[in-house]
Amino acid sequence: MDSKEFGKLIEEAQAGDHRAFEELVRDTYADTYTLAFRLVGDKEDARDVVQEAYLRAHKGIKKFRGDAQLTTWLYRITANCASTYLTRRNKHQHGDLDGLDPVDEDPDRDPTNRADVADLRSQLSDALMKLPPKLRSVVVLRDIYDLSHESIAEQLDITESAAKVRLHRARKRLREHLYPMGEEDQAHAV
């Protein structure tokens, strides 16, 4: 669907046309679900987050001003819903979102032998799922979905500097996971 058609549907949905809103859902839900899954790391939880996100989008569609893309607006809503969901889940599980260091389930990792992009993507997806949710949320929103630090901070209810610190830690962990250091490198890092 091109942006003109998209814009028309948004206008119709804002005017109360439920079918137009349904069409927007059909066109965006796979993308929104993918983001939700990357944020919460569980299929069932991602379904709940997506439903909540569209419910909020439905209630707030009239407030959408069109100064951002609809998808970016949906990303922000989804990020906010996922953050709320993770906080609630964490309360029930009494766990720490920052958690322990991710468990290394695959010690046989050597990216130099697997240089192709598809493989890197698959390794990255795995590495992302091993990050604690608080770090994962920030790196997913910034580096995959290109949300600004300001927007990320707002949706996750944290300060902008906290978002930047988390991003730095997340990227560092991803690098450590994908390119584990040898003894020589560890000495270099000191």
Partner: peptide, 21 residues
């Protein structure tokens, strides 16, 4: 490389189980 890989993930969809729509 990591940042390029992450950016490329935006075009990748995770297919939801039936019935979500």
């Amino acid at each position: 490389k990591i940042l390029r890989g992450l950016t490329s993930l935006q075009g990748e969809f995770i297919v939801p189980d039936d019935g979500l729509l």
